[in-house]
Design a protein around this nucleic acid. Structure first.
Lengths: 130, 130
DNA sequence: CACGATACATAAGCGTGTTATGTTGTTCGG
DNA sequence: CCGAACAACATAACACGCTTATGTATCGTG
C-alpha cells in the first residue's frame, strides 16, 4: 500500500507540464479566461506561485496573458491552441495507460472499481473539505 | 475529478516529513537496516536523492547511519525511536482523517469502496509495472 | 596486484512551492 | 473629488526535493 507513493510521484512528474499546470490549462479550457488570483485559489497555491506557473506556461506557449478591460490591474489568462493540444494529448495518454492497466485485471476487479467510482469521487470531496 | 490534484499535493506536503521520507522510515521499520542504494531503488529515486534525503532525516533525528561491518564502503540506515514515533503518529493521523471522511459518506458508498480495495491495490500494481 | 565495478558523497542546476515586499490601479468615505 | 485603504499582480529571496555529472573510497577478480 505504500507503493502508492511511487505511483503518485511518477504520475505527477511525467509529461511536459506539471499537474498544477495541467489543471490550470484544463480549467481555462473549461471556463475561459481567469485571473491569476482566482486560479491560485482554485488550485490551492499562493498567488506568487500562480504568477510563476503562468510565466512558465506562457514561455512554453501554452497560455497567454490578455489585458482585462474592466480592471487594468488584473490579467486574464487564456489557453492557446497548443495548450489545448497538450492537455488533450496528456488526457488520452493517461486514459490509455489506465485502460491498459485495467486490462490486466480480471472482470471482477474491473466491476468492483467501476462500482466504487462515484463513492470515491465523493470521498475526495470529503477529504478536501477539511 | 481534477480536484484530485489538490488532494494529492496537500496530502503530499503535509506533515513533518516528505512522502518519500515517510516511506523510507516505514520500510526501515519493517525490514531493518538498509543500504542507501537499495532504498533509492525501492523508492524509485536516484542514489544522490536518497543520500540527501537520509541527510535530512538524520538531521531531524529520524534515522541513523551505521557502519556496515561487511562492506566499509556502504552504510546501513536504521530508524531511531523518534523516527518510529513520527511515522506512527503520521499513520494514525492519516487514518483518522480517512475515517472522518468516510464517516461523511453513506453506508452504500463505504461498502462500495471497501469492496473495491483489493482491486484497487492490484490496479496500482498494474500501473507501476509499466 | 592492478583495474574495473560498486557504494556513497558532493556539486551544480531545475522545478515548484513558500513568505515578504513593491508597484500600480481601484474604491470609497470625509 | 481626493487621499487612504484595499486589491491584483510582480519580484525577490529562500526551501525542498529531485535530477545528472563527477569525485572518492573500497571491493572483488583476472
Amino acid at each position: 500500500m505504500e507503493r502508492l507513493v511511487r505511483l503518485v510521484r511518477e504520475v505527477s512528474t511525467a509529461g511536459e507540464v506539471s499537474t498544477t499546470g495541467a489543471a490550470v490549462i484544463a480549467r481555462l479550457g473549461r471556463l475561459g479566461g481567469q485571473r491569476i488570483t482566482d486560479l491560485a485559489r482554485a488550485e490551492g497555491v499562493s498567488q506568487p506561485a500562480m504568477t510563476q506557473l503562468v510565466n512558465r506556461l506562457e514561455g512554453d506557449g501554452l497560455v497567454r496573458r490578455a489585458a482585462d478591460s474592466a480592471d487594468r490591474r488584473g490579467v486574464l489568462v487564456e489557453t492557446t491552441d497548443r495548450g489545448r493540444e497538450v492537455i488533450d494529448a496528456r488526457r488520452t495518454q493517461r486514459a490509455e495507460a489506465l485502460e491498459a492497466a485495467l486490462g490486466r485485471l480480471d472482470a471482477t476487479d474491473r466491476a468492483a472499481i467501476a462500482a466504487a467510482l462515484p463513492a470515491l469521487d465523493r470521498l475526495v470531496d470529503a477529504v478536501l473539505d477539511s
